[in-house]
Write a protein that binds this DNA or RNA. Structure first.
Length: 649
RNA sequence: GCCACAAUGGCUCAGUUGGUAGAGCAAUUCAUUCGUAAUGAAUAGGUCGCCGGUUCGAGUCCGGCUUGUGGCUCCA
């Protein structure tokens, strides 16, 4: 019997029933058959070797396709598991999926046995050996009872726990050599597809992500169908490391940490401060236009303030402990957020609906006792400054205010050339609604409005249920760092809870008292994290913009003095401090004069430059940047970024 | 907090089976003024993260702590 196979281009061909995707690929071309690693069958990803019994639409996946990579890495995880099983008898397996850049397997090597990165070469060698054996990877359906028995016999307690949760009749295993794993698939036809492999790191990972359960050993690895791809990948990683804000921050003298000051408490150096102040000024300018009022509040607040806000009950024990005074029973907390202080400002005077929205902004430094293992450069710290603001408005104004905040975030991301951000709408858990505060009506309205606003603004936001704050839904903006880790930057949160707790009021047009709604928002998120991500995003793009300073122009002979002064005037107009050194003694090594060394930019002006309206740029310690147009140089020196900031309107 | 790894002058690193610390760059001084980072000469700079142990002797071996790195968990 023949079956009809429909291809992505719409063409249909007939094949005998039971044909595999591999056979289909071979029927098209032997080259394709070589490249293909998995197949899409009616929307599911299948093994190439799995027989197709009915009419189907088929798509052949190569390594380049997401689905192809996924199957490739998933099989690689099995390959590693097989190697581990041979090297560590009695090892138990957790789960071993493909991830964004490779795969991992969570294993329990047994008590007293540790797998270290120094063991990697041996594991890699074993994997290579298994690859050379070209072991077929075989899929098998198995009943729940048989599966339970099979894995229980082997002492695979983690696997049996997983099987317990599966429905009978849907369980499959995959085997290669003497290794059999519980697995949904799909997989490569055999182990020989893996041409390059490397184990990356070892880490502890809690079984099922639960801190209270046993910590397994997670081994990360990556594999490729070509040796060259691995080399390229490793080069890419090296390149990414060069953009790491911690490295650049040190090199450019932007920030530092001190053991004496404490973990996660960054010290901004003069240049880093300059950078941060520029960002702050930029945002302040925008906020002024958008009707924000700047406020300032202290770094500590009475314990009662946080009892009122509800934060004390939730985070009190796990945070910096209260500050005591000579006064018996008096306690202050380092502020973990600015909202309560702003609520108190709101309460300081009565409000009419005519006063709203009231937008209070503050670059507020907060302190949070993050777990030590979680600290990371400037992106996760224990003391940081939020570009915070709280908008107090009537329920009717929420949507409009929300849009305006999105506009601000849009302006910032555009000015700073952040294109690769992801937006996430965080809503309530669909089932469990008890953990949220506020009326059903308000929640529904707020959630609907966030979704609407995103649609109107053309923002392609991912919706996550259960990720909302307990007081309201939110919209977050995430950006990836040099190594692809996601960090949350901007956030907008709608809050019906704090106005309640602080009993905030305004008098409405009906002369009755009403509860305002609060919008928490921070376009940068935190200044520290933003600076970090900004550094990684602009590194290589605007190589010099982080350290704008002085420049000295050196005309190589008297002939070019006028031209040098002309450039100087041009650059000075752009707020660059420029010195012309037209002593016209021979240039060159003169730069190494102590005095000159302090000036980071040397612009050399001679015949070539005068002709082309150019300058040759050299930055001390970085060498020749080649000749470039004056305007280009000016853009670099004044910061391309800052220029764009000025153009935001 | 948990798992693994690491910590040597300002920076990047070397330091052989434990025998008393080394380079390059940066800094300082002098010379040099040559059209391109980084010219020559000289000087200075380290209780080898901290505490303890083993040893005749510890940067090196062992234990604890601190800090950092890759993950996990967390993330107001």
């Amino acid at each position: 019997m023949m079956i009809k196979i429909t291809f992505p281009d719409g063409s249909v061909r007939e094949y005998p029933q039971g044909t595999t995707a591999m056979q289909i690929a071979e029927s098209i071309s032997s080259r394709l058959a070589q490249d293909v690693v998995a197949a899409g069958v009616n929307g599911d990803t299948w093994d190439l070797t799995r027989p197709i019994e009915t009419d189907a639409s088929v798509k052949l996946y190569k390594w380049e396709d997401e689905e192809g990579k996924h199957a490739f890495w998933h099989s690689s995880a099995h390959l590693m598991a097989e190697a581990l099983q041979e090297l560590y008898p009695g090892i138990k397996f957790g789960i071993g999926p493909a991830v964004e850049n490779g795969f991992y397997y969570d294993v329990d090597p047994g008590d007293g046995v540790a797998i270290k990165d120094s063991d990697f070469p041996a594991i890699e060698a074993k994997m290579a050996e298994l690859v050379a054996r070209k072991e077929a990877i075989v899929r098998q359906n198995i009943s729940k009872a048989d599966a339970l028995k099979m894995f229980a016999d082997r002492g695979e307690t983690y696997k049996t726990e997983l099987i317990e949760e599966l429905a009978d009749g849907t369980i499959t295993t995959y085997s290669q050599g003497v290794f059999t794993d519980l697995c949904r698939g799909p997989h490569l036809p055999d182990t020989s597809y893996v041409k390059a492999l490397k184990l990356m790191s070892v880490a502890g990972a809690y079984w099922r992500g639960d801190e209270k359960r046993k910590q397994l050993t997670r081994i990360y690895g990556v594999t490729f169908p070509k040796k060259k791809m691995l080399d390229e990948y490793l080069v890419l990683l090296e390149e990414a490391k060069k953009r790491d804000h911690r490295k650049i921050g040190k090199e450019l003298e932007l920030f530092t940490f001190s053991q004496n000051v404490g973990q996660g408490l960054p010290l901004l150096l003069p240049k880093g401060t300059q950078l941060r102040l520029k960002l702050e000024e930029f945002l302040k300018r925008i906020q002024k236009k958008f009707g924000y009022l700047q406020v300032m509040t202290p770094h500590i607040g009475g314990k009662g303030l946080y009892v009122t806000s509800g934060h004390y009950a939730k985070y009190g024990k796990d945070s910096f402990q209260p500050i005591h005074t000579p006064e018996e029973g008096e306690e202050f907390l380092l502020k973990p957020m600015n909202c309560p202080h702003h609520c108190e400002i709101y309460k300081a005077s009565p409000h009419s609906y005519k006063d709203l929205p009231l937008r209070l902004a503050e670059f507020g430094t907060v302190y949070r006792y993050e777990q030590s293992g979680e600290l990371h450069g400037l992106t996760r710290v224990r003391g940081f400054t939020q570009d915070d603001a709280h908008i107090f408005c009537t329920p009717d104004q929420v949507k409009n205010e929300f849009i305006k905040v999105m506009d601000i975030i849009h302006i910032i991301f555009k000015a700073l050339d952040f294109k690769d951000y992801e937006a996430q709408i965080s809503l309530r858990d669909q089932e469990n609604r008890d953990k949220y505060i506020g009326s059903e009506e308000n929640w529904e309205k707020a959630e609907r409005e966030i979704i609407e606003v995103c649609k109107e603004k053309g923002i392609n936001a991912r919706v996550e249920y259960g990720e909302a704050a307990f007081y309201g839904p939110k919209l977050d903006f995430m950006v990836k760092d040099a190594l692809g880790r996601r960090w949350q930057l901007g956030t907008i949160q709608v809050d019906y809870n704090l106005p309640e707790r602080f009993q905030l009021e305004y008098v409405g047009a009906d002369n009755q008292k009403h509860r305002p709604v609060m919008i928490h928002r921070a376009p940068f998120g935190s200044m520290e994290r933003f600076v970090a991500v900004l550094i990684e995003h602009t590194a290589g793009k605007f190589p010099l913009w982080l350290t704008p300073d002085q420049a000295v122009i050196l005309p190589i002979s008297e002939k070019f003095n006028d031209y040098a002064h002309q450039i100087a005037a041009e650059l000075t107009n752009q707020d660059i401090r420029v010195i012309v050194d037209d002593r016209n003694e021979k240039v060159g090594r003169k730069i190494r004069d102590n005095e000159m060394k302090k000036i980071p930019y040397m612009l050399i002006v001679g015949e070539k430059e005068a002709e082309n309206n150019e300058i040759s740029v050299r930055k001390h310690g970085e060498g020749d940047k080649g000749s470039m147009k004056i305007t280009t140089f000016a853009a670099i020196l004044t910061e391309e970024v800052e220029k764009q900031m000025n153009d935001w309107q």
